[in-house]
Simulated assay, not measured.
Amino acid sequence: MRKLSLISCGLLTLALFGAQAARADQLADIKQKGTLVCGTLGNAEPFSFPNPQTRETQGYDVDFCGAVAQALGVKLELKLISVAARIPELMQGRVDVLAANLGWTGERAKQIAYSDSYFVSNQMVSARRVDKYKSPADLAGKRVAAPKGSTSEAGARKLIPNVTTVTFQDAPALFVALQQGKVDGVVLSELTLVKWKHDAESSPVPIDVLQPPLFVEPWGIGMRKGETALINKVNEVLSGMEKSGEAAKIFDKYLGAGTEYKLHRTFKIEPIKG
């Protein structure tokens, strides 16, 4: 009986080891199934948003997902997710990677692996012009909205004294809450707020983007920890896009001088310094 017990334990150990090895080779699994499932938001222009004509999801994040899929020789499948669901969807294996406005934080880095940063975001505060706020500090003690589970929410709580945070599932709901006066300000990526400001100029409730930035954050592609082959491959693809100029072209396509954002690329793809 003892011999059989030892054999059973040995077989169980081998099974567990085999299962761990299988999970640790996600890159091979992606190539075998022929599809890369990329989690993205779908409602965060210009990073992932519906094309007005085709309704297909497009954007900065989508193009980076597509470049990774192409380098792996597989098809790209997009899965639209909410801000709060990003990490759970990844951890539970429902998506292979995340390209979903995923700002780096030390807490998140304990849960998931990040690629090198492919975008650097200024997180800003927006408020109604009629309220005449000049800087984020003016929102001390006020009600400020942010996407639920986002770094914008965490940054507001940490950096605006005595703030009350109000969270919503998506960015459009934040804009409506601000215009209706349900909140005094919104914390979001500079790019989204710049577009809102432009769109609101002709509305009864114009808004301003307050200076200086509340904080600056690097964004990375999220992957599960321990997937060394996939992590290395994604970073290899990103490095190649930087060297070839493809990364800069994607930036110019969605954010550059020919767009409504008229931004200049002031960063390069590089490892995130935690």
Rank of each mutant, 00 (worst) to 15 (best):
L210K: 11
V186I: 13
K273N: 11
E190I: 06
G274S: 12
L12Y: 10
I207Y: 05
R224H: 04
L11W: 10
Q20I: 13
V237K: 13
K268I: 11
Q123Y: 11
R94V: 05
P213E: 03
F215V: 07
L76N: 04
Y60I: 02
A109R: 08
T192P: 00
H198G: 05
A67Y: 07
L6Q: 13
A19T: 15
P271W: 00
L255G: 03
N122F: 09
F17L: 15
T151E: 10
F49N: 08
E242I: 08
Q211A: 15
V205S: 12
T164Y: 08
K33V: 04
K253W: 02
D25P: 05
R143L: 14
K158T: 03
D199F: 07
G34R: 07
L76Y: 05
V97F: 05
F251A: 03
L90P: 06
P213M: 09
A69I: 02
A177C: 02
N101D: 07
R224Q: 13
K249N: 09
L16Y: 11
D199R: 11
I231W: 02
E236R: 14
A99D: 05
L4W: 12
A171R: 12
V95P: 10
A127W: 00
C65F: 07
G258M: 07
T35A: 07
P172R: 06
L76V: 09
K253F: 04
A177R: 09
A22P: 05
R157K: 15
T164H: 13
N43H: 14
P136Y: 08
K79P: 01
T167V: 06
D96Y: 03
Q20E: 15
A71G: 00
L12E: 01
R94E: 09
A69T: 06
G34Y: 03
G181R: 09
K225N: 12
C38P: 01
V163D: 00
M241Y: 06
E77G: 08
V183S: 10
V97T: 01
F47Y: 06
R86G: 06
T192I: 10
I269T: 06
Q92P: 01
K195R: 13
E45D: 07
V120G: 00
V237G: 08
A200F: 15
G10T: 09
I81V: 10
S202G: 12
G226D: 09
R86N: 03
S203I: 10
F47P: 01
P206G: 09
L36F: 02
D208S: 14
R128G: 00
T167P: 02
G185H: 11
E246I: 10
T192S: 14
N232Y: 06
T40S: 10
V68C: 05
P271R: 03
A44T: 14
L214H: 10
G258V: 01
L174W: 02
P147Y: 08
A28R: 12
A156Q: 02
G39T: 02
V97K: 10
G181N: 12
K148L: 12
V205A: 13
